[in-house]
């Protein structure tokens, strides 16, 4: 297989070396009580298409920025659970954020326009469900409202 230089650089960036230092430098940047990225070090992204992997990294970056922004505006005392990131058999990346009374999921699909998020709650929130498509390249508004909900209810 012929791989041009640019592609190889990209592959090296996203698939080899130290996943933690390349993808998750922010593991050290957040206070431990809100560091939702601490369990992501061993996520194996080798089977994920390059473009989708870039989307996932970009999405996690946006998540980090929003948490830092919230933390800078008012030191957060919440204990936020870590994200669980898993690569599904069909190649999609499923990011789950699980709280005692609700769970939030983000599914980043190979067909990017099919990416979606959901919220599932227990009877404390009237067992409500919500699910919508979203654009993983512009998740800031969605993430901001979800983080606000999580902080308010955790």
């Amino acid at each position: 297989m012929i791989v041009n230089t640019a592609s190889r650089e990209c592959i090296n960036k996203y698939y080899s070396g130290n996943y933690r230092s390349i993808h998750l430098p922010y593991i050290q940047e957040l206070p431990s009580n809100i560091n939702i990225f601490k369990d992501l070090e061993n996520v194996n992204t080798h089977s994920v298409p390059l473009k989708l992997n870039e989307q996932v990294v970009s999405f996690l970056d946006s998540f980090k920025e929003i948490l830092i922004s919230y933390n800078n505006s008012r030191q957060l005392s919440n204990n936020l659970p870590p994200l669980a990131v898993n690569i599904l058999e069909d190649g999609a990346t499923l990011i789950e954020w699980i709280f005692p009374d609700f769970r939030i999921g983000f599914s980043l699909e190979n067909k990017v326009s099919a990416s979606s998020w959901y919220l599932i709650t227990n009877n404390k929130f009237k067992e409500s469900l919500r699910s919508e498509l979203f654009d993983p390249s512009e998740p800031q508004e969605l993430l901001s409202s979800i983080v606000a909900f999580a902080l308010q209810n955790s």
């Binding site: 499923l94 769970r103 599914s107 067909k111 099919a114 599932i120 699910s131």
Partner: peptide, 14 residues
């Protein structure tokens, strides 16, 4: 895909 993921999530949670 969106409904598939939601259904899997509900099965896991409920």
């Amino acid at each position: 895909e969106a409904v598939r993921r939601l259904i899997s999530g509900v099965i896991a949670y409920d």
